[in-house]
Amino acid sequence: MLNGIPLYWFLLVSAALFCIGLYGVLARKNAVAILMGVELMLNAVNINLLAFWRYMAPGSTAGLAFAAFIFVVAAAEAAIGLALMISVYRNMRSVDPDKLDTMKL
């Protein structure tokens, strides 16, 4: 399926996705949106892992195993991160990280 697609195409797409996610993390005003940015970044990482696996070592399972692990990490991150946001929202009525500077319940 890789007729004429060089490896760096995948790497560039992944880099672009990572930077979009980074922008989301840095610039969004809503913590849930920030977590969406993190999910984009994790996806970019996975594209990279699988692209390197496919081009450099299709017989090895290293890239695949770590990609599978990233799935678990992403799910755990989303579950805990969003639970935190919901908890914060319940106490503060806001999920704007700029306003969450009190460190108090």
Partner: peptide, 26 residues
């Protein structure tokens, strides 16, 4: 999960999507 979290924190939907640092972030 993300959609549920969006719904549960709905009152907090920001009118502005980005904070003041967005040019620097860009």
């Amino acid at each position: 999960l993300v959609i549920f979290a969006v719904m549960l924190t709905r009152g907090a939907m920001a009118a502005q999507p980005a904070n003041s640092q967005w040019p620097a972030a860009l």
